[in-house]
């Protein structure tokens, strides 16, 4: 940790701070918003980029200290692929359970509650 180039050090610090702040924003959104579907936005976006920032910092740090930051890359890819899928499944569960939404209940959904289980 003590032999890093100052620029690399600054880059890692910047990515760490950005990532952590976006993670925090995700948490705040989760606690603050008024209904489930609005809360769904905060973690799926902010947290993905937040963890992405932290992981980029980890990757740069690995490269800078002469290792090959592969697990970090795999975690980033995995999170970016899975976050939309779990968001979609949670939204479907909420619609199925008729969770209240400030935007009202979508008109098209009332008759076919089980028609859309194909994306698995």
């Amino acid at each position: 940790m003590d032999t890093l180039h100052p620029l690399v050090d600054a880059l890692i610090s910047l990515m760490l701070i950005i990532g952590a702040l976006f993670t925090l924003v995700g948490g705040i959104g989760l606690a603050r918003f008024g209904d489930f579907f609005m809360r769904l936005h905060a973690p799926t976006k902010a947290t993905t980029l937040g963890v992405g920032g932290v992981l980029i910092a980890a990757m740069v740090y690995s490269w800078a200290s002469g290792r090959f930051g592969v697990p970090e890359l795999l975690i980033t890819l995995f999170l970016f692929i899975t976050a939309p899928v779990s968001a979609n499944l949670m939204a479907k569960a909420a619609l199925h359970l008729k969770v209240q939404s400030k935007a009202g209940r979508p008109a098209v959904f009332d008759d076919g509650a089980e028609t859309s289980g194909k994306r698995s």
Binding site: P84, K92, F109
Partner: peptide, 18 residues
Amino acid sequence: ATVITTTPGTVSCVIDED
């Protein structure tokens, strides 16, 4: 659907293939 979820303020909730 994936792209919609990861971009500005939108989450794709139901994919209705019919």
